[in-house]
Design a protein around this nucleic acid. Structure first.
Length: 592
DNA sequence: AAGGCTATCAACCGCGGCGAG
DNA sequence: ACTCGCCGCGGTTGATAGCCT
């Protein structure tokens, strides 16, 4: 604290160990050694203490904070000295309030990093982690109070439930072991899906959602500012749907169309995923109800997810730690690979490949960024993959899944759907699907994830290794029609609101309200956002060192700070997977 | 003017990572 | 392999200022 602004010493209970009991008498700041032990003063710093500390740093440099007491006689513990120096005395500290640009960047960084204040501070020169933390916590309170979304609308990636159809259709078909789908039928389905996905190939690096022009047309909107680049020449309109447009849907629980790119170039400034989306098959009645309860509806915990706060504790919920757009359940490896060892290529192909080692070996690609968190996740996913190997072997042998197998395979969240030698992940984000909406806990609640995602017999059937008796037969043509229908209808706002966003039992009036809001939003002409395009692959345009970095921070730092809506776009064609740096950077990178 | 409430800020606390011994 | 100390980080607390009623 600046001595000028000193608010008087506070009485600190002498419970701390690192900093010994306070000698809180408004002393000169000079330590008094008693029986070989140096007491540490607590409370606000005086200008005299500041001067002593600065003088010490000038002489000896930073670090060795515990030696400050020793050499300078300052009656402060090392931790206190470090804090004082870092937050107030070190040079180049900005004392002014945050600028709008800085605020914007804080939000972006938080959406990427979560409560990693120190990391965030490293991207904001002159700002301290404490400053940012205070700002954020204040902001959260303010937003909470105002009932506003935590992140600005354009910072929100949106997800529309496409997986549901994939899950419901492909998986169910496979589950039923419908042989009639072989011989081109599957191909049609997959091709249809691929072109559908290709039509939405643009990835917003600025966390906005791309809605294909065709889709917009189907919604009755005239596409605007469509890019003509991209695979198949599909045009897209940069449209942003944010929960901000959903009254009562405030927060960051959003629905994101899972483009291939998002899986590949995914930015951890993540995506909220409808728990239904990630749910790859019809759940049991119980679990379905559970899921339903976790689907978006006003007042749900999912909605309140946006209001998590590092320090706030929502009534009736467990403490939440991670940001809404970030989630520990997001496994970055799985994002790249699906969860089943599938890796997406930028040309829209889905490749079946091996575990991470294969992945890194075959490809030069990696995430554009990495972080300790990311690495953790990669490691985790590697472990998961290994587990998967074993587990899949088990499941291939027998459909009799033991509880132990269930637990084992449940780590995988893997649903293999072999389609003519290729595989389609039922839910690339499925791993986190539930957890993403699991706002009631800061912890990735794997147990619930297991509960939802692990139906071993289904998994086995998906792999074509167990002929699970079908409960209903779906004809190929029906399936195709339904798939096509769902593909193009499920992304309609009213549909996804009705089925994905809002609980089916939700008041239709509310749906309508939200739909209107979306219509209003889409009617706007959002400024060209930072999608990648064929013409200018942002990633490729990044400095080489950034591309090669293993640290997400570096990449984030390379992002434009003052251009929340950069014009660069990305496309499948222009930014080949192979251009990506090696994923080895991730696993080899040192944490922090 | 007084009291209550909220925002802001500084500082403390506990914990975990890491390296040295 | 283990312990210990240092350091940094994130969460939390508490004082004060300012606003509102």
């Amino acid at each position: 604290m600046n001595p000028d602004k000193s608010k008087g010493n506070k009485v600190v209970s002498p419970k701390s160990q690192p900093c010994s009991p306070s000698n809180d008498e408004g002393s000169s700041g000079i330590s008094s050694k008693v029986e070989g032990r140096t007491d540490s003063k607590k409370g606000p710093w005086t200008s005299e203490e500041d001067e002593i500390l600065m003088d010490h740093v000038r002489k000896y440099g930073q670090g060795n904070w515990n030696s400050v007491q020793k050499y300078s006689g300052l009656a402060r513990c090392g931790k206190s000295c470090r804090l004082r120096w870092a937050n107030h005395l070190r040079p180049n500290l900005k004392k002014l309030p945050f600028t709008p640009e800085e605020e914007r960047k804080i939000m972006e960084l938080h959406s990427v990093m979560g409560n990693k204040w120190a990391r965030m501070a490293s991207h904001l020169p002159g700002r301290t982690d404490n400053e940012i933390k205070n700002y954020w916590n204040t902001r959260i309170k303010r937003q909470q109070r105002a009932g506003l979304p935590l992140y600005p609308p354009d910072l929100c990636l949106q997800v529309v439930d496409v997986n549901q159809l994939m899950n419901d259709q492909f998986c169910c078909a496979e589950k039923r072991n419908d042989k009639t789908l072989s011989g081109g039928k599957y191909e049609k389905l997959t091709n249809g899906f691929k072109s559908f996905m290709a039509s939405r190939q643009q990835l917003s690096y600025a966390s906005s959602v791309d809605i294909p022009c065709s889709m917009q047309k189907s919604w009755g909107f005239e596409p605007q500012a469509c890019s003509t680049s991209g695979q198949g020449g599909n045009s897209t309109k940069r449209s942003k749907i944010c929960e901000a447009v959903f009254p009562g849907c405030h927060g960051n629980v959003t629905y994101v169309v899972p483009t291939y790119d998002q899986f590949q170039i995914q930015h951890p400034r993540m995506v909220f995923w409808n728990s239904k989306v990630g749910y790859p098959f019809e759940p049991s009645a119980d679990s379905k109800n559970l899921l339903s309860s976790r689907c978006l509806k006003s007042g749900s915990n999912a909605l309140s997810n946006s209001y998590f706060s590092a320090s706030s504790h929502l009534p009736g919920t467990e403490k939440m730690e991670l940001p809404s757009l970030q989630y520990p359940g997001i496994d970055f490896h799985n994002l790249l690979a699906g969860h089943n060892g599938l890796y997406y290529t930028l040309d829209g192909n889905i490749q079946s490949s091996g575990p991470p080692s294969d992945f890194t070996g075959k490809s030069d690609c990696t995430l554009p960024h990495s972080s300790g968190l990311l690495e953790d996740l990669v490691y985790q996913s590697q472990g998961i993959d290994n587990t998967y190997k074993e587990s899949s072997e088990k499941s291939s042998v027998s459909s009799a899944i033991t509880p132990g197998d269930m637990l084992e395979s449940s780590k995988l969240n893997i649903l293999n759907v072999d389609l003519e030698g290729r595989s389609v992940p039922s839910s690339p984000f499925g791993l986190s699907a539930d957890s993403l909406l699991d706002d009631s806990s800061s912890v990735f609640r794997r147990h619930e994830y297991y509960e939802y995602h692990e139906l071993p017999p289904f998994k086995a059937s998906l792999r074509g290794e167990v002929a699970t008796p079908s409960t209903e037969q779906v004809s190929t043509s029906k399936l195709q029609d339904k798939v096509a229908s769902i593909i193009f209808e499920s992304v309609r706002p009213d549909v996804f609101l009705g089925e994905g966003c809002v609980d089916r039992s939700q008041d239709a009036k509310e749906n309508s309200h939200m739909g209107d809001a979306i219509v209003a939003l889409l009617a706007q002409d959002p400024a060209p956002s930072s999608a990648f395009s064929a013409d200018s692959c942002t990633w490729n345009n990044m400095p080489q060192d950034v591309q090669e970095t293993s640290d997400v921070d570096d990449v984030v730092a390379a992002l434009p700070v003052q251009d929340p809506a950069p014009s660069s776009t990305f496309s499948l064609d222009s930014c080949p997977w192979s251009n990506m740096p090696s994923v080895n950077h991730i696993s080899d990178g040192k944490h922090d």
